[in-house]
Design a protein around this nucleic acid. Structure first.
Length: 623
RNA sequence: GCCGGAGUAGCUCAGUGGCAGAGCUUUCGAUUCGUAAUCGAAGGGUCGGGGGUUCGAAUCCCCCCUCCGGCUCCA
C-alpha cells in the first residue's frame, strides 16, 4: 500500500530457560540419527527434539485415528506442531488420548531409521497420504526432479522427512500438548483447513516447567487484563470491536508519552500539523488506497453534498496535500511534517487483539519530503531520533530489519538503488546491526523495521521507516531545484512508537503494569491513618502537586492496612502513610513499590526534594 | 474472513430441563485503626442478542454479536 505501514504484531515467545550458556549446567548429550551428538539444550538439540516429538505425535494420531491424513509437522520456537485431517476437529479428550499414546511410544524407545526412496517409490508408499503426495510432487518440480525422497521410520510408522531425528523416541524427556487450532494447508486461506495440534518439548522436566511458568507470566502481564485491573482502558460492544475507550489513568500514561513525543519532534526539526479524520473518496482514489487498501477501510458515508467521505486509514495523503499547497524550493527541503494522527482500519475480525491490533489507532506519524541527496542524512536523523526517544522510554532497539525490493514494485531502478544503498549506509553509520529481508520491502519502497524486546524476552515491532517512491508520483509532488528544473521529492514515512495504542499495550506488558514513576498515572498515594490526619495529608498532597507529582489521597474510612493494600494493587510507585508521629515530626512513612516494607521517619522535604522538577524517570527513592 | 473454545451481577466464577448463586466490588451503619484484606446489613441479573423446542430453558436446537486461542491478513 502506498504510504501504508501496518504495524506487525510479533508476539514471538521468549527464549527463556536453560538455553542461556551462563547457566553452566551440565547438559545431557543426545545422539542423532546422523550419528552426531549434540547438547540437548542447544538450539539444534532442542530443534531435533521438538521435530522428533512432532513425529511421535503424528504417529500417535495415526494409530488412534486410522485413516488420518497428516500434512506437515515442523519444530517451531519453543515447540512443534503437526497438521492433520481426521474429518473432524480434535477434542480435549482426543488430546489426552494422544498424549497417553505418545508416552507409550516414548517408553518403547523406538529407533528412528532413515531411508532414501526414489520419487516413484515415495509416491507409492504415501499413496493414501494426499498431502505427502503433494509435497513429493512439489519437490520434484522445484528441485528440477530430485532423485530421491527422504523418509524416517520408527516402528512401522513413517514420514516424509529430511531429519535428522533423535536416535530413538526414548530421548524425549518432557513434552506437553498445548492446544488445537485450525490452520490452512500450506498457509493459504483458499486451501482446506486442517487441524493443527501445538505442543512443546524440552530437554528436561525442569525446562518444561520453566517454560510453562513463562507462559503464566505472560498471561499475568496481559495488557487486556491489566488494563481492566488498573482502570486504564476498556472496550464496549456499543462502540464496536477494536475501538478502545481510554480511561483517565490510561489516558495519563498515553498523554505523558505523547507530550514527550511532541516535545522531541520539535527538537528534531519536525513541524506539527493536524489533518481531519475524513476525506472525500476522490482523495483515496488518487492516493491509490481505494485500489489497494479498500478491504481495510471502513465503508464510505454519503453526504448531502453528493460527496462520499471515508475515514482515513492513513495520514499520508493529508500531509502530502500540505506539502503541495504551495510551490517548494530545494532550499525548503527537507520538510518534516508530524502528527499524532488517528486512523481507522477495518481489520478482519479475527485479527483484533486488545490495544495491540485495533481498528482505531493513533500513529506518531511523520512524513519527510526531501531531495534524493538528503535521504541518507534524513534516515540517520530518524534513527538518532528513535534512539533518543527509546533511551528515554528505556527500551531497545533490539532487532532491526532492512527489507529490500520485492518482485512487484514501482519506481525506477535508479531510485531503488539510491534508497537501498542509503538505508544500510545510514544503519552502519548509526552503528546498528541489522538483518536483511530480501524482497520483503513494500512495493513502493524499501523499509526498516525496528523491534524492541520486553522484560520477559518477547520481541515487539514498534517503529517502521519506509521510503516511498509511489505517492510523490501519484500526487505529482515537485520542488524547484537550483537549476530551475522541477524535480520529484523522495518521501519517507516513519512512526517511532508505531501507534499509541500498541505502544502503551507493549509498555503495560513490559512493565507488568508497574510503570516507572514518570509514566505512572498515580505516582504517590497518601494514606492518612485516621480521619484526623486527612487535613495534613491534603496539605502534603498540595505541596507535591506543586512539584508536579501526580498524587492521590485515600481518605476513605477504611483501615490503613486496606488502603496500603489497595495502593499496592494499583502499583503506585510510592505510598506515604501519615499519622500522629509523622505530623509531629514533619515526616512521612514511605513505602516504595516492590520494597515490601516501609521506611519510617523520612523527612517530608527529603521526599519532595527527590521530585523537584518532576518525578524521576527511573528508579525509586532508596529505602 | 476461517477452525476451535467461551459469554451467568462491575470483577472472578459455581450452577446441564424445575424458585438464578458465592466471594470481591458498590451503598449504608458501626469501627479511627501503624504498613497487603475490620465487622454487620443492603443493593445489584432481559443468564451476550434474537428465534425455536418444551407444561417449563441459563441449561436443548438454529441464526447473529462479542471475546479467547490459532490460521490468514497486516500495501
Amino acid at each position: 500500500m502506498p504510504c501504508g505501514f501496518r504495524l506487525r504484531i510479533r508476539r514471538t515467545r521468549a527464549r527463556v530457560g536453560p538455553e542461556d550458556p551462563e547457566g553452566v549446567r551440565v547438559v545431557a548429550k543426545i545422539t542423532l540419527t546422523d550419528g552426531r551428538s549434540v547438547d540437548a539444550s542447544s538450539p539444534e538439540g532442542r530443534h531435533v527434539l521438538r521435530h522428533s516429538t512432532s513425529h511421535v505425535m503424528a504417529q500417535a494420531v495415526s494409530s488412534l485415528f486410522p485413516g488420518a491424513k497428516y500434512a506437515i509437522g515442523p519444530a517451531i520456537e519453543d515447540g512443534f506442531y503437526y497438521d492433520f485431517d481426521i474429518g473432524r476437529p480434535f477434542t480435549p479428550e482426543d488430546l489426552d488420548a494422544i498424549d497417553a499414546k505418545m508416552r507409550e511410544i516414548i517408553a518403547e524407545q523406538q529407533k528412528f531409521e532413515h531411508e532414501a526412496l526414489t520419487r516413484d517409490e515415495g509416491l507409492k508408499r504415501f499413496a493414501d497420504q494426499p498431502f505427502k503426495v503433494e509435497i513429493i510432487k512439489g519437490v520434484e518440480e522445484s528441485e528440477g526432479g530430485g532423485e530421491s525422497v527422504s523418509v524416517f521410520r520408527n516402528d512401522g510408522w513413517e514420514d516424509l522427512c529430511l531429519g535428522p531425528h533423535l536416535e530413538h523416541t526414548g530421548l524425549i524427556p518432557a513434552f506437553k500438548l498445548m492446544r488445537v487450532a485450525g490452520a490452512y494447508w500450506r498457509g493459504d486461506e483458499h486451501n482446506p483447513m486442517l487441524q493443527r495440534i501445538y505442543g512443546t518439548a524440552w530437554e528436561s522436566q525442569e525446562a518444561l516447567e520453566q517454560h510453562l511458568q513463562m507462559l503464566e507470566e505472560a498471561e499475568r502481564r496481559d495488557h487486556r487484563k491489566l488494563g481492566r485491573e488498573l482502570d486504564l482502558y476498556s472496550w464496549a460492544d456499543e462502540v464496536g470491536p477494536g475501538l478502545a475507550l481510554w480511561h483517565p489513568k490510561g489516558a495519563l500514561v498515553r498523554k505523558t508519552l505523547e507530550d514527550l513525543s511532541r516535545e522531541m519532534h520539535l527538537q528534531f526539526g519536525y513541524q506539527p500539523v493536524f489533518s481531519p479524520h475524513l476525506g472525500r473518496s476522490t482523495l483515496w482514489e488518487v492516493s491509490g488506497h481505494l485500489g489497494y487498501y479498500r478491504e481495510n477501510m471502513f465503508p464510505a458515508m454519503e453526504a448531502d453534498d453528493g460527496g462520499e467521505y471515508i475515514a482515513k486509514p492513513m495520514n499520508c495523503p493529508f500531509h502530502i496535500l500540505i506539502y503541495r499547497s504551495r510551490t517548494r524550493s530545494y532550499r525548503d527541503l527537507p520538510i518534516r511534517l508530524s502528527e499524532l494522527g488517528t486512523v481507522y482500519r477495518y481489520e478482519r475480525s479475527g485479527t483484533l487483539h486488545g490495544l495491540l491490533r485495533a481498528r482505531g489507532l493513533t500513529q506518531d506519524d511523520s512524513h519527510i519530503f526531501c531531495r534524493p541527496d538528503q535521504v541518507v542524512d534524513e534516515l540517520l536523523g530518524v534513527i538518532e531520533f528513535f534512539r533518543a526517544l527509546y533511551a528515554t522510554v528505556g527500551m531497545g532497539p533490539d532487532r532491526v530489519r532492512f527489507s529490500t525490493r520485492p518482485d512487484k514494485s514501482v519506481g525506477s531502478d535508479e531510485l531503488w538503488d539510491l534508497a537501498q544503498e542509503a538505508i544500510p549506509e545510514a544503519l552502519r553509520r548509526a552503528g546498528i546491526d541489522f538483518t536483511v529481508d530480501e524482497g520483503d520491502g513494500t512495493f513502493y519502497g524499501p523499509k526498516i523495521d525496528i523491534d524492541v524486546r520486553d522484560a520477559i524476552g518477547r520481541y515487539w515491532q514498534v517503529a517502521t521507516i519506509q521510503v516511498d517512491f509511489n505517492l510523490p508520483e501519484r500526487f505529482g509532488l515537485e520542488y524547484t531545484d537550483e537549476d530551475n528544473v522541477h524535480k520529484r521529492p523522495v518521501m519517507i514515512h516513519r512512526a517511532l512508537y508505531g501507534s499509541m495504542e500498541r505502544f502503551v499495550g507493549v509498555l503495560v506488558e513490559h512493565y507488568a503494569g508497574a510503570f516507572p514513576t514518570w509514566l505512572a498515572p498515580v505516582q504517590t498515594v497518601i494514606v492518612p491513618i485516621a480521619d484526623r490526619h486527612a487535613e495534613h495529608a491534603a496539605g502534603l498532597a498540595e505541596q507535591l502537586r506543586a512539584h508536579g507529582v501526580r498524587v492521590d489521597i485515600d481518605d476513605s474510612r477504611e483501615t490503613m492496612q486496606l488502603k496500603v493494600r489497595n495502593a499496592e494493587l494499583q502499583k503506585a510507585p510510592y505510598i506515604l502513610v501519615v499519622g500522629d508521629k509523622e505530623i509531629e515530626n514533619a515526616t512521612v512513612a514511605v513505602r516504595a513499590r516492590g520494597m515490601g516494607k516501609a521506611r519510617f521517619g523520612v523527612p517530608f522535604d527529603e521526599f519532595a526534594g527527590v521530585h523537584q522538577g518532576g518525578p524521576p524517570r527511573e528508579g525509586l527513592l532508596p529505602v
